[in-house]
Design a protein around this nucleic acid. Structure first.
Lengths: 248, 248
DNA sequence: CGGCTGATTGATCCCGGTCAAATGAGGTGG
DNA sequence: CCACCTCATTTGACCGGGATCAATCAGCCG
């Protein structure tokens, strides 16, 4: 068992996630850890890592902290289209396109590894399981984005918010960031509103409703889910799109 | 110039699209045409090609006709999360995941090519430009899905519908399916409602509003856009996410 | 002709938006 | 330690966009 030490520990979240999504070979794990160590960076909260229209020339893997992808209309209306959680990748393969369609901003302090395009392509060429894992990550992103579409288009306010809580909770679980029935939840209600397509005022009232029915506690940037099954059922949440379980 | 004959003509739409997205080598074009010819199929309207939960074992490329991806909640609420137009791929790489998260249904009669997984993987391994093109297609899908998120979450009814019209129109253009200022638009208002997250009644009223302001005509499954710039501006439509223009 | 699907219209209601203000919780500098 | 500022959360009042319910109309097909 490598990656118990101070060094390998950094890539823990990524490796855990990939192993659920698509198992890595031992050499792939080693190569990934190596690449991660070569380009460590940090960013404070509220920093834009990527701006709409940018040309991407590297791949970034989040080691700790939260970010979100968002788009803004001319008149300022904003939609958060997804969150990026520890162990997830900002923009695998995005260097293939001339420009990126959305912005990425940190919600908290973030530690990430940056792998230059050429380095990344070499890595993909030499480690098939790693290439497949990144491919799966892109496909998963796609699936999550589709679920967000039905969330925004067809669920009512309470379901939207409940569904978002369920999803984040289940996405944090495989990387070991759920403790007991709580997880960190470091985003403002304004962000939450922009993620669910609601106004801040109504989002606030919806959260209070979830609190009142005893489904959740949200305080001091911590989300506690008292009755996960009840929350899931209130959200019409079905986790299959998250691909958390491998085929037998 | 090959692919003028009856055979090569079939793959025209795909090749045109890919050449805008990411240019193919001559050998890639030939290999793709070959693979397409090996597995031609047809389906009638209203057929499910893929059902949520299915395991995918091949890649399908649409040669003609429209399909849509959709998800349904337990209680029947449905969201169309995207359309699949001629020249587009149903599920490149989807065989990597144990199961698919959404259904794909034909809206019209459809002709498509089916390439088995093993065959497809060999093709990707031998033709780098083709592999990159499919990768770009997946990335583009992702970008479209994100734009749909802001459409569903932050635009009002009129903008939503106008935006959908603009997007489809611009997606049909590179494959040569726009004639003058019209294109085929073979979906019911119910489908349109489920794509924009509106009720059928309100969708109908919104279309009438677009008609009344002289922006569009929609009759006999044909969409005519009288003033594209005006429609785009009403929709807050910005086409960059469609990656239709290559970097200089 | 009857039955079916899709488009259209009318009437009514309510979820969630908007506006405005109050309350709280740091953070900073004097 | 307090005055002051800023940012996030919360509350109240009101309004309107879009949902819902219920008919009607128009093609199309057998």
């Amino acid at each position: 068992m490598r990656s118990q030490g101070t060094d390998g520990g950094l890539a823990q979240a990524v490796i855990r996630r990939f192993n659920v999504l698509r198992p890595l070979s031992e050499s792939a794990v080693a190569a990934l850890e190596q690449a991660v160590l070569e380009g460590l960076f940090r960013a404070g909260p509220g920093e834009d890592l990527v701006a709409e229209g940018d040309q991407i020339e590297s791949v970034r893997i989040v080691l700790s902290g939260w970010l979100f992808r968002h788009k803004t209309l001319e008149d300022g209306r904003r939609q958060i289209v997804n969150f990026i959680l520890p162990g997830e990748t900002c923009d695998a393969h995005a260097y293939l396109l001339p420009s990126i369609d959305h912005s990425i901003t940190t919600a908290t302090p973030v530690a990430y590894a940056e792998i230059k395009r050429v380095r990344f392509e070499k890595l993909m060429a030499s480690e098939r399981t790693l290439a497949e894992a990144f491919m799966c990550e892109t496909l998963l992103n796609n699936a999550i984005q589709r679920e967000w579409a039905i969330n925004l288009g067809r669920r009512v306010a309470l379901e939207k918010v409940a569904h978002l809580f369920c999803e984040i909770y289940e996405r944090l679980r495989p990387v070991g960031l759920v403790e007991g029935n709580s997880c960190s939840f470091p985003v403002t209600q304004m962000d939450l509103a922009d993620a669910t397509g609601l106004s801040v005022v109504h989002l606030n009232r919806t959260i209070q409703e979830l609190r009142a029915t005893g489904l959740i506690t949200l305080r001091d940037r911590t989300l506690t889910i008292s009755d996960l099954d009840a929350l899931k059922s209130a959200a019409l949440f079905s986790p299959t799109y998250l691909q958390l379980y491998r085929r037998a």
